[in-house]
Design a protein around this nucleic acid. Structure first.
Lengths: 225, 225
DNA sequence: GCCGTCCTCCCCCGCTGGGCGGAGGCCGCG
DNA sequence: CGCGGCCTCCGCCCAGCGGGGGAGGACGGC
């Protein structure tokens, strides 16, 4: 069972080049080509390819939007590999959010293109090394960007950080008191010292601070069950 | 100029195996081995390797902590490749935050180990495909998971969303009133209807809701200048 | 021993915040 | 035109929050 591929690129020459390269691999079959985002959507619906090679910069409808629509409407397991000349990192996140499975630069050696297609078809994910580095640094450094803010967290005691976390869940002082098995008055005094140390005004600013300093991360909360 | 490598694993047999595999590649030189995190730190300082293959599960000091310390104290361009049997995704984020440049599973074919070492040494980043997928889904799905929460945002009117955004900045009702050129009483009634519609209790929960529903994203706020 | 820090708890008090009810003006829909 | 939704505002009431200030006990460093 060969891998069916749809090649999407507005430049016919580039498109043909990719097709030629892939044709040298017997396990890969290019079933269609498209020159715009709209054509891509149409061709995807008709041929239901396993993998779509998608350029970003295209007239009518760009590759990101086309990717998004195809993924949303597809009723078969399609996987999309973004191919681009540049690597402005904003594209990467948009592409991944749109539902792409991979993101590689056009400067990869020809034989790696086939490897990439196979990896994607197997359900894997693939990102060009230079881009992976940025993904990593977003993970490694990204959440720590607010060093100026996060740094002030260290001025707090352990207990105070507990309080901050609880406040950042939207709990009242009495609720926090019950959770921590201490008196409400104690929670109040902790909150007071937190406000003083962090230079904040009220508990809502503590919540903002908790999120901005990455003490609390979105997606880890239940709110308004 | 060959690539100097430090191999760290608590199991001598595994460690030896890695070393044997790498020795078959003339451009790679294993300069030292270590069986614990502490030994790894010491060996790293002494041999200053280009690349460190680091196991996670180790006695005394695990690979994550060792990675963190080595990266922080290193005064040469060391790059660390985490090797592990399992892939509990928490490890990935911890490892990347600790400063690792790559993360691969031990089940990769031998020749890919050498490739991985070269990629890392060249300044690239490498993550096992199965793990890359998780990285991607964190990016792709992470911010969109809370559809159930974000959906309730649509029950609010435009003006109410303005109020939510302002509350999520930590502003008081009177401040919001001034910003929007309306009376404080109006802000109060908006806040009330927001609380009712969203099933929340007070403004701190509105802040939490704003972040969890991605109405407000971390890193876009100034807090406690 | 003394001192500092942290955690715990107390009282008093001013004020914001939020519930409740009501009201008027505007606009779009049937 | 009447109805309903939205935005605007008002008054009353009071629980909860936060400021100020104080105090005791545990712990560890000097």
């Amino acid at each position: 069972m060969s891998i069916s591929v749809l090649v999407v690129d507005d430049q016919a020459l580039v498109r043909g080049g990719f097709t030629m390269i892939l044709r040298t691999h017997p396990d890969i079959e290019v079933v269609a080509e498209a020159g715009t985002g709209l054509e891509a959507i149409e061709a995807a619906q008709r041929h239901r390819p396993d993998v779509i090679l998608m350029d970003i910069r295209m007239p009518e409808l760009d590759g990101l939007e086309a990717t998004s629509r195809i993924v949303q409407e597809a009723d078969w397991p399609v996987r999309i590999l973004i191919l681009t000349t540049f690597d402005p990192d904003e594209y990467v996140y948009q592409a991944l959010r749109a539902g792409a499975s991979g993101f590689v630069l056009k400067d990869i050696p020809p034989h790696e293109l086939a490897t990439a297609v196979r990896t994607i078809a197997d359900g894997g994910a693939l990102i060009a090394p230079s881009i992976t580095r940025r993904l990593i640094s977003r993970f490694a450094e990204g959440p720590t960007v607010n060093t100026a803010v996060a740094e002030r967290l260290h001025r707090l005691t352990d207990r105070e950080r507990d309080i901050v976390a609880a406040v950042a869940r939207g709990d009242t002082n009495t609720e926090i008191a019950q959770q921590l098995y201490i008196g409400p008055a104690t929670v109040k005094s902790h909150v007071s010292s937190i406000l003083t140390k962090l230079g904040l005004r009220d508990r809502t600013q503590i919540v903002v601070f908790a999120y901005e300093s990455s003490l609390v991360k979105p997606g880890t909360q239940d709110i308004g069950t």
